[in-house]
Design a protein around this nucleic acid. Structure first.
Lengths: 242, 242
DNA sequence: CAGTGGTCTAGACCACATC
DNA sequence: ATGTGGTCTAGACCACTGG
């Protein structure tokens, strides 16, 4: 039995209030949030305390500070410059490459046991399943199957995905107002089945890394289930332990 | 070409000075560092600035703050309570278990191309190679091959490892004064060779996750090369993306 | 109780970006 | 020149630990 927190610092309360504003969409991804003096005035605290709250948000990657310019709501739409934040697959030769994406299909269906469990849906609720192949160094690297709650991604079609220029999470954010904040990945090694092998251009039975990702938005609410099969002949999964 | 940093905040400089103290062993792992007022006096700064420096160290996991008690040098010797900080392998059933370890052998040899590259040694320098199996849920889960620079781990023997009660990094820290601070892991999927398969109690050819870890101490200096083969039938590799 | 880290404030000044 | 975030200070007070 854990006792409820008996004390919440002021900066923590301010942080929570700002998160609620972010959640409600008061300031959109990429936009600036109010400057520190204004936040301090609004919440009736010293600038130091407002600053502490914003610091916490920056540590959580919810906002990005830019000296001299302001503090901006974090976004997935400006990741084209480097490698997407959530992509752990890298080329063995060390070259930083934004992976190419080929969409296979977009289907509507009912949530199975696994999907409903991970996404917190009732069995049989509508989901959208999207499949694609990521290319790295000119060869297929990852076969992705992305499962989304139908209610959140109503107008999502193959055309819409193909028309969008940028990362998947950029589309989710700008097109559907769903912000991907954290993810938890679970990795296993499996043998390639014939169908997947064909799409990845490897022999059936080739060892692959199976990545299961559950992505969450505000309040740890799960909004994406992603299963990726990674062929690691010329690339690898990278992880830094701090 | 990157320009040299033109400005270093005071708190950053203090942080660096404290790191040097830590590196020199002025305070040993598990011990308390001087309280904030004392640090402030020693470095002739305000307590707020000293605090900022210690905050940075805490963020880097070099020290651990404990309210009311003090600030302590981080250690790997107190990880028995939970799961070791650098271990990403978890049981599928969610049970938190401290893995059992069976040592296979400890050999002295010469650094090969890979080892010398990753550990920054000259080819042919002496290394110690240690092999073991980690058990999870009563079954072999990971086959580890740990390569260490001979000069740093002079008295390391099979007996010494078996006599030590605690994690490998706990032994390195208390027995050899080498503190493991960060690590970078590179994962690939491979098929089990017959020898490894036997030790992991799986069929030859079974897909495994091959984890290559390079662990570093102060100044990003590499001090361990570890190759692990993970059988993921009843466990998985877990990674949180923030 | 004294000593530790944790919070909050008010104010001065610095570094950076923009006009 | 102005406005933004970033640094530093001095001091008051709170929360937690242990004698």
């Amino acid at each position: 039995m854990t006792t409820a927190p008996t004390f919440r610092p002021l900066w923590r309360q301010i942080r929570d209030l700002i998160v609620r504003e972010l959640e409600s969409g008061a300031w959109k991804p990429g936009e600036a949030i109010p400057p520190e003096p204004e936040l301090a005035a609004r919440y009736r605290v010293s600038q130091g305390t407002a600053r502490r709250a914003v610091d916490a948000l920056a540590d959580e990657n919810l906002v990005v500070r830019r000296q001299g310019k302001g503090t901006f709501v974090a976004t997935h739409t400006e990741e084209r410059v480097s490698v997407p934040r959530f992509l752990r697959i890298r080329r063995d030769d060390g070259v930083d490459e934004y992976p190419g994406s080929r969409l296979i299909d977009v289907r509507r269906s009912k949530a199975g046991v696994e999907a409903s469990r991970h996404l917190g849906l009732r069995a049989g609720e509508g989901v959208i399943v999207l499949r694609r192949v990521l290319d790295l160094a000119g060869a297929p690297a990852v076969l992705d199957e992305i499962t989304l709650p139908g209610t959140l991604f109503r107008g999502l079609t193959k055309d819409r995905v193909e028309a969008y220029r940028g990362s998947m999470y950029g589309l989710f954010e700008t097109g559907f107002g769903v912000r991907m904040l954290k993810a938890r990945e679970t990795l296993k090694a499996i043998a390639a089945d014939p169908a997947s092998a064909a799409l990845l251009a490897v022999e059936p039975g080739t060892p692959l890394i199976a990545v299961e990702r559950v992505t969450t938005t505000y309040g740890e609410r799960p909004v994406e289930l992603r299963r990726g099969l990674c062929a690691t002949a010329r690339c690898h999964y990278l992880n830094d332990l701090g």
